[in-house]
Structure formats: structure tokens, C-alpha cells
């Protein structure tokens, strides 16, 4: 199993044959990252919208902080969530360390700032354009924020897809809080890391192909949605 070509061939056989182990790992990956992106959107989107339309002291600092948090290193997030969830930590009694739930939490923490910061930018740009018109029509802040979210929904969806891509491709955080337990918390990225070090290149490569394909499909989807929306709604 030394040559790259052989590894590719074996990897393709695993994918084409719906290998059970591969399917299980891919399934868990999707489940964890989708859950994380849903939670991150439910928190990040209203947060971004609020920061976009409200004026309060410390707002600029919060924006800088939020933008900085977009580059949060996954291993650091993993470490912090690990400390919180470990037996001795403040949330240790929940007993969820090394479960998919812990992985969802870690990924949600990782991508909430991304969704909040980017949606803040998009909604604030729209606000600049709509501000006077909406106030002239008598829209209150909350009403205006909802209108802006609805009017930028396609751009916001692109952000959510980007967040999902980031979550699915991330390895450091889920490795630490999940523990990469076979059949329980093993996801694509952690499996790739492990299988590579074990020398099982076909499985690693097969997972790698699935992962890259997923990322490409997501980006294509985002592009198509934007294009469609632009043509449909201008």
C-alpha cells in the first residue's frame, strides 16, 4: 500500500461500495456539524443582527473582538470546552465529555463568532441602505432587524454554509472533546488523522475525498443560491 495510485484505488472501492465503517464515520460527521451549525445560527444570527442595528457603548470593541474570534484556533476551543466539561470542571456533572454532544458544543463555539461577525457585516451594510426608508415608514428596531434579515437571507445562507464547511473540516476541537472513540465519536477529520498515523491510507484517503467533495459541493451550492437570488430578486 505504498503507492498513491493503489491507495486511491482502494479508497474509491470503499466509497463506491458504501463501506460500513466509512459510512458510519461520515454520518456522524454530518450529524455533529449540522447540529453545531444550527445552534451557532440560532445564536449568531440574532446576535449579529442586534449588533448591526443597535448603538451601545463598547459596540466597536465587541465588533473587533467578534472579528478576531473568527480566527479562533480549534485546538484552543477544544481545550477550553474540555476544561469546562471534564469531571473536575464546572459542567463536569453533565457527564458529556467524549460524547457527540461535547463535539457539537465545541464546534458551535467555534463557528458562532463566524456566523455572528459575518452576518453583522451583511446586515449592517443593508441597514445603511435601508435605514432612512424603514424609519420613514415607521419601522421600529426589532421590526427593521427582521426585515433586514429577510432581505439578506441568501447572503446569510451563504454564511451558514461557510460555517458548516468550517465545522466539518475542523479536527482539533473534536479530537480533544470527543476523544476519537471508534464507533462513538470518530468523525472524518479525526479518523483521517488516526488512520494516517496507523498507515491505513485507503480509509484515510477515502474519507479525505468525501470531505473535500463535501466542501466543494457546499461552496458550489452557495454560489448557485447567490446567483439564483440575484437573478430572481435583484
Amino acid at each position: 500500500m505504498n503507492s498513491l495510485g493503489e491507495a486511491f484505488a482502494a479508497a474509491w472501492k470503499l466509497i463506491a461500495g458504501f463501506d460500513a465503517e466509512l459510512a458510519q464515520v461520515v454520518g456522524l460527521s454530518l450529524q455533529v456539524s449540522l447540529s453545531a451549525v444550527v445552534i451557532a445560527t440560532l445564536i449568531g444570527l440574532p446576535l449579529g443582527a442586534m449588533i448591526a442595528v443597535e448603538r451601545f457603548p463598547g459596540r466597536q470593541t465587541l465588533i473587533v473582538l467578534l472579528n478576531a474570534l473568527m480566527g479562533l484556533p480549534p485546538v484552543v476551543v477544544g481545550l477550553v470546552v474540555y476544561l469546562l466539561l471534564s469531571r473536575a470542571g464546572p459542567l463536569g456533572s453533565l457527564g458529556i465529555l467524549f460524547t457527540p454532544t461535547a463535539m457539537v458544543i465545541a464546534q458551535a463555539v467555534l463557528i458562532t463568532p463566524i456566523i455572528a461577525a459575518l452576518s453583522r457585516q451583511i446586515i449592517e451594510d443593508a441597514w445603511r441602505e435601508y435605514d432612512e426608508q424603514l424609519r420613514s415608514l415607521g419601522a421600529q428596531r426589532l421590526n427593521a432587524a427582521m426585515t433586514l434579515i429577510w432581505d439578506t437571507r441568501f447572503s446569510l445562507l451563504t454564511i451558514v454554509l461557510a460555517g458548516f464547511g468550517r465545522a466539518a473540516a475542523e479536527v482539533g476541537a473534536v479530537m480533544i472533546v470527543g476523544g476519537n472513540i471508534d464507533g462513538v465519536t470518530r468523525v472524518m477529520t479525526t479518523a483521517i488523522a488516526l488512520e494516517t498515523s496507523k498507515g491505513d491510507l485507503p480509509l484515510a484517503l477515502g474519507l479525505g475525498i468525501v470531505l473535500v467533495t463535501l466542501v466543494i459541493v457546499l461552496n458550489a451550492l452557495a454560489a448557485i443560491i447567490r446567483e439564483m437570488a440575484l437573478r430572481r430578486y435583484g
Binding site: 432612512e132 429577510w150 435583484g234
Partner: peptide, 10 residues
């Protein structure tokens, strides 16, 4: 009020 550049919602 009607503005110089109309602001239309999507």
C-alpha cells in the same frame, strides 16, 4: 417621504 434613490425591499 420619497427619496432620490428608491430603496426597494427584495
Amino acid at each position: 417621504m420619497v427619496f432620490q434613490r428608491p430603496v426597494m425591499l427584495r
